[in-house]
């Protein structure tokens, strides 16, 4: 119980820190963001005093109120779920845009990450179990894929399978012309077809890291005394591998999985930029392009929340799969 409370407390502090960073970054930047934004908006059409007031309230510069007061207001608005109105997709609210784009990102990136983790850990365990086999020799090749910059790999694959051989569509999340969104067969099929190539690129570029980490932990675990004991007892090799070696070797990978979930949500930005996928990363880029600070802050908040949530979940899971963490707390 103490362990649980400690963890929850930590994530609350982390959440507060992220919110504070989100609040102070625009206020610490050189130059007046309100003027920058107003002049950009002015190029598109006349700026009404109300718009100026809302921009000032949003960015909180020179509106007469002291900083701590703005900070309290900001936290209060967030507590009500009020993220403001988007400038790029005016008059849609930031909340509704996030609602539209988030499922795409979670579906594509989330699934691809889980597939990559499972495949990498499985292959890594097999490679560590049979050192020197062909699978073990494959590891340097897959780690090569890791040092290839992700977006470059994605571009080359898109070039090869999208333009040259035309096996996969070049961009988008589904076929906009022939299917209607909803829970129907053609739409889901189209989503799977359009998501296949982005998912493949994510798995290709991340599976090597899981493999290497798991393989090295397998090697370390295999030299423990209790494995010699297990072997001496005459247990079946399969049982030794899965229940004795892999089960202990997987622990660092699980905590690595939590950290990488953050990287993957962040990585979705590049993926979605390459494939023009209608997820939250594309929305973030559009908001950056259009100086849409409300949308930008809202999306940063959602990304932070999901990373914190994923980490919390894995921490809780960890205390179930590794009793030592419970005992220590």
């Amino acid at each position: 119980m103490r362990y649980l409370l400690r963890k929850l407390g930590f994530y609350l502090v982390a959440l507060w820190a992220a919110l504070t960073v989100n609040f102070f970054v625009p206020r610490l930047m050189p130059g007046d963001p309100v003027e920058i934004l107003i002049s950009k908006l002015g190029q598109r059409g006349p700026v009404t005093p109300q718009m100026r007031a809302s921009v000032e309230a949003l960015l909180g510069t020179d509106s007469g109120e002291p900083l701590w007061r703005q900070y309290v207001d900001y936290l209060g608005n967030l507590a009500h779920g009020d993220l403001g109105v988007s400038v790029t997709f005016f008059p849609a609210s930031v909340g509704s845009i996030i609602e539209q784009t988030l499922p795409w990102t979670i579906g594509l990136i989330g699934l691809a990450t889980i597939i990559s983790f499972l495949a990498g850990v499985g292959l890594g365990a097999a490679a560590g179990w049979k050192r020197g086999s062909w699978l073990d020799n494959l590891i340097p090749v897959t780690t090569m894929f890791q040092s290839v910059p992700y977006f470059w790999l994605a571009l080359i694959l898109l070039f090869a399978f999208g333009s040259v051989w035309q096996l996969f569509p070049l961009n988008g999340g589904y076929d906009v012309y022939t299917v209607t969104p909803g829970w129907n067969g053609p739409f889901l099929g189209s989503v799977l077809y359009y998501g296949a190539l982005p998912a493949i690129t994510i798995v290709l570029s991340s599976v090597g890291g899981w493999m290497l980490g798991m393989r090295n932990m397998m090697v370390s675990t295999l030299s423990e005394d209790y494995l010699v004991t297990a072997e001496a007892k005459g247990l079946r090799p399969g049982r030794i591998m899965l229940r004795y070696a892999a089960r202990n070797a997987i622990l660092p990978s699980v905590s690595g999985f939590a950290i990488s979930l953050g990287f993957v949500v962040a990585g979705s930005i590049v993926t979605e930029a390459v494939f023009s996928y209608p997820g939250i990363g594309s929305a973030l880029l559009q908001s950056v392009g259009g100086n849409d600070y409300a949308l930008m802050q809202g999306i940063f908040l959602v990304i932070t929340l999901s990373v914190l949530g994923a980490n919390l979940l894995v921490d809780l899971l960890y205390s179930v799969i590794d009793p030592r963490t419970r005992a220590r707390a």
Binding site: V21, F263, A266, N311
Partner: peptide, 15 residues
């Protein structure tokens, strides 16, 4: 735990 790349994007978009 604070995600890096989005933070970098947010910071760099202000400058």
């Amino acid at each position: 735990v604070i995600p890096g790349l989005p933070l970098v994007i947010v910071i760099s978009s202000y400058v």
